[in-house]
Amino acid sequence: MNIKKLPAYIFIWLMPAALLSGCGNDSDSVLSSFPEPESWTLTQLDDGVELIQRHYDSLFDAPQFIHVVSVTPDAGDIGLGFSSGYLFDDLRKPVSRYGERLGAIAAINSGFGHGGPDYANSGILKIDGELLPFFDDEPDELHFVGSSAVGLDEDGMPVFRTRNGDDWDDEWPEVDHAMAGGHMLVTGGSVYPVVYDESYTTHIEDRHSAVRHPRTAICRTYGGHTLLIAADGRHDGEAEGLTLNELARFMLDLGCMDGINLDGGGSTTMWTAAKGVVNHPTDNQEFDHEGEREIKTVIYVK
């Protein structure tokens, strides 16, 4: 097991959202660029931070429930953070508990937790220039786990990259903050080729990617907004869930320029300080807000 070493304790506070702008020319609500903006429900969580939700009777020929937290590029002191259960006494806990302990405005589940010890992320996890424990020696059928990541460059810009090989031994020196997820979904305003072609290489990857499940993702829009996305699933008649191809295509409709898939399925959870858990996690197999799973890592807004 290729476990990276961790300094004793690290707290992350990423760059202010005002520095997250890709184009920097759109400070209004991102909702204006969403499909049928009048059909979404908007809740203002803080200055420059919005919760935007919509239930579809039919999206990709199935009912869907989509939840988006948007951070504008000029949100002042508000920014993104990465956190891991390794920094606390309990290595795994629900997203809501992370959010409360971090004093966050909003939080979503993030990295995968397949294989390896409870304190290690699947794929690179880097905070304030230091590496937290992670592993990247998954079996071949799970090699898509930890295969892409979101980071912040030296200018505070969110950037996305793939692993580009068997492991993360280069430690992504261009960024001080990084959180690995799963597949790259959108790059340069196009669906990532593997996801577009659905050219998955193993039965497990195909079952994970080409079958509808709850999904979590993060992207940056052309207007510089950061979007945290949770799509419900596994609820017949209410929310069927999305394949990765469907998720990526929908992200293009939301204006995403670059973005990656995060852990989904029973891990998919979106929490806000104002409203608690706002999506419908599936671990209790009920269409309510009570079915949170204990997870290793989160991305949060504070």
Rank of each mutant, 00 (worst) to 15 (best):
residue 10 I to P: 00
residue 11 F to T: 15
residue 14 L to N: 14
residue 14 L to Y: 00
residue 22 G to L: 14
residue 26 D to W: 12
residue 28 D to Y: 12
residue 31 L to R: 15
residue 39 S to Q: 15
residue 41 T to S: 13
residue 42 L to P: 01
residue 43 T to D: 13
residue 43 T to A: 11
residue 46 D to E: 14
residue 48 G to V: 11
residue 49 V to E: 06
residue 50 E to V: 06
residue 51 L to A: 10
residue 53 Q to W: 04
residue 55 H to S: 15
residue 57 D to K: 11
residue 67 H to I: 02
residue 78 I to L: 08
residue 86 Y to N: 12
residue 87 L to T: 13
residue 91 L to F: 08
residue 92 R to Q: 15
residue 96 S to Y: 05
residue 99 G to C: 02
residue 104 A to Y: 03
residue 107 A to K: 06
residue 108 I to H: 09
residue 109 N to I: 08
residue 110 S to V: 03
residue 114 H to K: 08
residue 120 A to K: 00
residue 122 S to D: 15
residue 122 S to G: 13
residue 124 I to L: 13
residue 129 G to R: 05
residue 142 L to T: 00
residue 143 H to Y: 10
residue 143 H to C: 09
residue 146 G to I: 01
residue 146 G to P: 00
residue 151 G to I: 04
residue 154 E to Q: 13
residue 156 G to L: 04
residue 157 M to H: 13
residue 162 T to Y: 01
residue 162 T to S: 12
residue 166 D to P: 03
residue 167 D to A: 12
residue 167 D to F: 05
residue 170 D to S: 11
residue 173 P to F: 03
residue 176 D to K: 09
residue 176 D to V: 01
residue 180 A to P: 00
residue 182 G to I: 01
residue 185 L to N: 07
residue 188 G to Y: 02
residue 189 G to F: 04
residue 192 Y to V: 01
residue 192 Y to L: 02
residue 196 Y to H: 14
residue 203 H to V: 14
residue 204 I to K: 10
residue 208 H to F: 15
residue 212 R to Y: 01
residue 220 R to K: 11
residue 223 G to H: 00
residue 226 T to S: 11
residue 237 G to N: 09
residue 239 A to G: 11
residue 240 E to W: 04
residue 241 G to F: 05
residue 245 N to Y: 11
residue 245 N to L: 11
residue 246 E to L: 02
residue 250 F to Q: 07
residue 253 D to M: 13
residue 258 D to Q: 03
residue 260 I to A: 04
residue 261 N to R: 06
residue 262 L to S: 08
residue 265 G to E: 09
residue 268 T to K: 04
residue 269 T to W: 03
residue 269 T to G: 05
residue 272 T to K: 00
residue 273 A to C: 01
residue 280 H to W: 03
residue 282 T to D: 05
residue 285 Q to Y: 12
residue 292 E to V: 04
residue 300 Y to C: 11
residue 300 Y to P: 03
residue 301 V to Q: 06
residue 301 V to G: 07
